[in-house]
Structure formats: C-alpha cells, structure tokens
Design a binder for these strands. Sequence first.
DNA 1: TTGAAGTCAATGCAGTTGCATGTAAATATC
DNA 2: GATATTTACATGCAACTGCATTGACTTCAA
Lengths: 153, 153
Amino acid sequence: MVKNESQALVSEAAETAWIALLRAHRDATNAAEAALRAAKLPSLYWYDVLLELKRAPEGLRAVDLERRLLIAQYNVSRLLKRMEQAGLLKRAPDPADARGRLLFLTKQGLVLQKKMWPHYAGVIERRLGATLSEAEAHRLTALLSKVDEQDPA
Amino acid sequence: MVKNESQALVSEAAETAWIALLRAHRDATNAAEAALRAAKLPSLYWYDVLLELKRAPEGLRAVDLERRLLIAQYNVSRLLKRMEQAGLLKRAPDPADARGRLLFLTKQGLVLQKKMWPHYAGVIERRLGATLSEAEAHRLTALLSKVDEQDPA
DNA sequence: TTGAAGTCAATGCAGTTGCATGTAAATATC
DNA sequence: GATATTTACATGCAACTGCATTGACTTCAA
C-alpha cells in the first residue's frame, strides 16, 4: 500500500506497521460497511453518532461529537442534519451557549442503534474476536493507543 | 467510537481493540492528509497508486490495483481517469486481455511520487517511528496482519 | 464452435465530502 | 464596556463516492 525504498526518512519497521494499519483498517471497515449495507442499514458513522448520543442522555454538543469521532466540523454538521431529518435525533438550544445546540437521541434513534449493533458486532467478532486471543487483543490496543496519544501532528 | 455494553456478541477485548484501530487510523490518516494538503499535494490514494505503478514498470491492470489497494472497482476506474488527465499515468491496451488496459507511470507521475514521499514519510515517522520501538512496530505489524489474513467475511 | 456465464472496465445518477467562507454568539483586550 | 478575536455551527460549490447497470471481451462446457 505504501512502502518506499529510498531510505532515511522513516524506519523500515515503522513503515511496515503503517501499511499493516492501513490494510487492516481498510479491510475491516469495508467488511463492516458491507455487512450494514447488506442489511439495508446506515453506515458506521451513523452508528458512532447514535452510540455517543445514547451515552450522553444529558445532551451533547456537535463540537464534542466532532472531537470524539474525529470527523471534520462541516461533516458533523451535515451528518446531524441528515440524521435529524431521519428522525434519529433532536437538536435543542443549549441554555449554556446560544451558538450551539444540544443533541439528543430519539426513541427511533435508540431503536436503530440496537438494530445495527448485531451486524456491526458480527464483523468485529469475526475480524478481531476470532483471530486474536484476549491477550493479543489487549496488546494490540496498547500499541495502537501509543500511536495516537501523539496528539497534534 | 464504538463500544457497546449489551454483551455476548463480542468480547470486551476485541471491541476495545476495534475502537483503538478506528481511532489510530482516523487520527493518523487525518494527519497525513492534512500534511499533503498543506503542501498542495494530492491525497493518499493518489500516492498509493503512484507507488504501485512505480513498482510495476512492466505495467499493471486496474484489477490488480483494486486488489492491492482495496478500493472499489468504480473508484479505481475514476481515480485512474483523473490521474491520467493529470498526466501522471498512461493507459495502453493490454495485449494479453483486450478487456483491460495496462497502466504505466509517466515521468511526471514519478516526479510527483518523489515529491509526495517526504511529506507522507514525515507523518509516518512522527506517528509510528517516534512512538514505537522497532520491536513494538514489529509486534504491531504482526497483530494487524492476523486481523486481515481473515480474508472473506 | 457457439452460446452461457464470468471478468474487466466505464458511467449516469444521487448522495456525500472537502474547501472556503459566512453568521452569530462568546471571550479576551484595552 | 466597546472592539477584536475566537469559537460554534452552517452552507454554496466543486469534487468524489456508492449503487446499479452496461458494454466489451474471455472462459467454460457441451
């Protein structure tokens, strides 16, 4: 996927790991998206939003979502509009800050989240649960976490 | 990013690893894309194509690219059209199979690949080279590889 | 060999994303 | 406490993606 021979810029090991990361991710998310589509369900991003909102029954601001999901601001904005139109969430004025609005999951949104989960979980289980032992999964998590603790860029 | 409490569908460890994978990838590719954009260079996918073609001076078919890069067929088709229009590659009839065409990198394409690499490499180095030891990078690669050896599903 | 089935690519259309910018409210500065 | 800066969110436009389908060739099988 990447991998370049002209040296000195990056260690061989780091570059190989990078490629493995890209491939594993692309492959796994392709599978997850395919599973959801096959079930006529929305994409992973929609799921992520539904779940975040489910966990924040006191309401969440778009900015928080943006940070948690690492999605660009304008995409969050439009994603929320679509999801609101689909009846999955509500946006109410934020008493603490009139610039933004607080987001709340609707009953319909909760129903959809629950409906999507098994499909999503199936993929995770096949990709990670079935191929890695508990210990390996933990090690993988630890290594990946080191990679993005690296906040800025 | 994901993470659900209703159990039994997936092990906790696998789910956590999944989230870590999504976050690490999103974060790292965001950084890489940002670095390339800041330098007014094309996106990662373009780079991937350039590099694959560089490595296949004997010519490559679109189908092969599709498999190597895990990009959908119609996206490969259009990506190649754009890159051809940009003068980065050439498409010639494949003597062995008249349905497809063979792809070749142009001199301009090679120049661009070389120009992009340092920007890309910088991100890889900061994300992976700087945060992981050689041994850790190798372990990460090994674990990620297990995940997508899992072909179909 | 011929026709049925499979493979390699391209494309119209609708939906989504990125970029640049805009509006409004909050915070900082003096 | 008026102005400048920053923050939260929205949006027009152009580019890109996914879906479904098509066209063109290859392969398989009787």
